[in-house]
Design a protein around this nucleic acid. Structure first.
Lengths: 253, 253
DNA sequence: AAGTGGTCTAGACCACTAC
DNA sequence: TAGTGGTCTAGACCACTTT
């Protein structure tokens, strides 16, 4: 099976052969690959070479290994589509926040843990919120779970000046969530800006979101602007890349 | 340096030590890591173990190897921000298409190669464009380069019925690009919907976009809707994840 | 107990880059 | 020529899962 004279390294040839069998459907999602010892005999290469081939497929997100059980073909993405129109005032009024709205739209059981702290603004925060460095900021760190599985990390930062004496400083922000409280506090919202980037997770992110190898994450920063044009909240979100798809609609005019 | 009794594998301890030195600034972007042979002596482990540690950092996108030269700390993302308001009619009128608009905004020298074919619609295309399977579709495949470097792959599909006798079937679509031609042909655009997902690239995508290890890609599908609500174009884009950031603005109301 | 993937060793040769 | 990363081997022991 392996052409030693082709110039292509053996492990890439093995990876290519396995990839082919996955793509053509000879192996299907959930199937187990032959064990490493068997692949050694099949392709006539050493075990390390087989492991390198499998490692390549893993880093492509095609397979994932389970210690003591085997290597399995990963199922296609299970995707929750996050449509940004759900942030409309009307949609917000109906529930306790964006994540719970997603839960209703996508039919999963949501749970959220929240940690609230107060910190001086670092450079990035100060620049983004248009305040001075060191000014006190309310920080809401949340872990969102769908059916018990962590799928999203989010950290919101707001100038404390505008959250004092509101439910935003409490774990439960009440019906409509933080955005509703902001509007009541005299900061009617005008628009949001989201910037989306993607990268591989840090080891901490990978463990918190229970990500397989070869799974990138979305890093989304949402900034909420009040009617006066002030940035009143920044929300840094980390989404598991294999569970989410983001949808945006915008006019042509 | 390595604690054999900690239970944590040696290669993870080495990776952790190197990651620490990168994060604390002991190694800076562009710096070369000590050679593998030197790390072998430093940490008292075999070369394979060192290579496993470096491989982990590579898969995290922290470093990249150059054969014969060394392993280098990757510079932070060089980011082009793609703001979707650039698709407004006014912005489009000024240039030949979205990519050339980006070029102007981000000051790089753009080049585009285009391949045009006509194909029967597959299931996905038919569903998305609301036509029957097998109906002829105009396919524009493009490779966009910034300063000679491929940064984006894009494939547009439109029902041929509406592109016949327009510049959309030509390599050069003229001032304002395909969208301007669509509007002239009697399909004024109303809005776009973009869905964004992220994943690791296939080997082909990685080689076309010249991606380092540990670099995910954006897969963006943009659908253009005419004033009558018809999907007139679908555009599947592949963007290098370490070069792009996507920005979307939407109202709170 | 048997099978699986995970870790690790010592050593070899190759391909690429620099001087 | 010397140094670098890339590939590969044969073999060992460990940790986890299943039977």
């Amino acid at each position: 099976m392996i052409d030693r004279a082709s110039g292509l390294p053996a492990y890439r040839q093995v990876a290519g052969a396995l990839r082919e069998k996955i793509n053509t459907g000879e192996y299907n999602p959930g199937d187990k690959l032959p064990s490493e010892r068997i692949l050694v005999e099949t392709y006539g290469v050493s075990r390390i070479t087989i492991r390198e081939a499998v490692g390549l497929l893993r880093s492509e997100g095609l397979v994932s290994s389970e210690h003591g059980k085997g290597v399995f073909i990963r199922p296609p993405h299970r995707v929750e589509r996050l449509s940004r129109s759900r942030l409309s005032r009307a949609a917000r009024a109906e529930n306790k926040g964006a994540f719970l709205g997603d839960a209703e739209a996508n039919k999963f059981t949501p749970s959220v843990s929240v940690k609230i702290t107060f910190e001086p603004a670092d450079t990035d925060t100060a620049t983004t919120l248009g305040i001075d460095e060191g000014v006190e900021v309310t920080v809401r760190e949340r872990v969102m779970r769908a059916n018990g599985l962590p799928v999203q990390l989010a950290t919101s930062r707001l100038p404390r000046e505008i959250t004092r004496d509101t439910l935003i400083e409490q774990v439960d922000t009440g019906k409509g969530g933080s955005y509703a409280r902001l509007e009541e506090a005299g900061y009617p919202l005008d628009h949001f800006v989201e910037t989306v980037s993607t990268r591989m997770p840090t080891p901490e992110e990978a463990s918190m979101l229970q990500l397989d190898n070869g799974t990138p994450i979305f890093a989304v920063r949402r900034i909420a602007y009040s009617a006066e044009g002030r940035a009143v909240e920044m929300n840094d979100m980390r989404l598991s890349g294999d569970k989410y798809e983001l949808a945006y609609e915008f006019p042509a005019g």
